[in-house]
Nucleic acid binder design. Structure first.
Length: 215
DNA sequence: AAGTATCG
DNA sequence: TACC
């Protein structure tokens, strides 16, 4: 395992520079292929239908989607109806190295932040169980990330997440409120357009009840 | 409420 | 805090 992680808040571990430039370029190419199969869509808020500024896609057996009827995981793309493409091997390797879970991830949410896109403070709580962590990987422009505690009122800390960085929400931080305040323009040359890709790998179902093989 | 708008 |  590369340099030892920084613990931002209890259970939130941060590995700056987990992927070197060559690995980032290979990952970006992996993702271009995934997005050709599963194009970015614009999620909408439950009830109001308000669009997110972040655009999304997924890979893996399940993908997270949001529309007027609510948040959920589903096996197919909301617009094309096709199954999500598989999770690229390089992402599975990062999960094996960092997640500390015997189970393979079932979902990899792909978030595209164009300059100006934001994500308000929220918890990742649409999974069945929270013993497995959420692993977040960053590519492209640097993001100003904020993480707090399990109550919305808890104090927060900010971290700049740069291209190649890895961050884990585990244990007491698995249900921590977190969000993206802003994307810092012109901070990376990795991608062919300005913006940031964030990848979050998760388990959705309880390990013992799932047919997906351990990794 | 993983959204925006607005105010103090 | 309000919004619907």
């Amino acid at each position: 395992m590369a340099p030892s992680p920084v613990e931002i808040v209890p259970g939130c571990f941060y590995w700056p520079g987990w992927f070197d430039r060559g690995e980032q370029e290979a990952l970006a190419e992996d993702l271009r292929q995934v997005l050709a199969q599963a194009p970015l869509f614009t999620p909408r808020m439950p009830r109001t239908g308000q669009p997110f500024s972040v655009r999304m896609s997924n890979c893996g057996p399940l993908g997270w989607v949001s529309d007027e009827t609510g948040y959920r995981y589903q096996p197919t793309h909301p617009e094309t109806g096709a199954p999500w493409p598989p999770i690229p091997a390089r992402l599975l390797a990062a999960w094996r190295a960092l997640a500390g879970s015997p189970w393979a991830p079932e979902a990899c949410l792909i978030n595209w932040y164009a300059p100006g896109a934001r994500m308000g403070l929220h918890q990742d709580r649409d999974e069945e169980e929270f013993s497995a962590p959420v692993l977040s990987l960053s590519l492209g422009d640097t993001a100003l990330f904020r993480v707090g505690g399990t109550s919305r009122k808890d104090p927060t800390r900010s971290v700049r997440l740069a291209s190649g960085d890895a961050l884990l929400l585990s244990g007491p931080a698995r249900l921590a409120f977190h969000g993206i305040d802003r994307i810092l323009p012109d901070t990376s040359t990795l991608l062919k357009q300005p913006g940031r890709i964030n990848l979050t790998l998760r388990r959705v179902h309880r390990g013992e009840a799932c047919e997906i093989p351990p990794c």
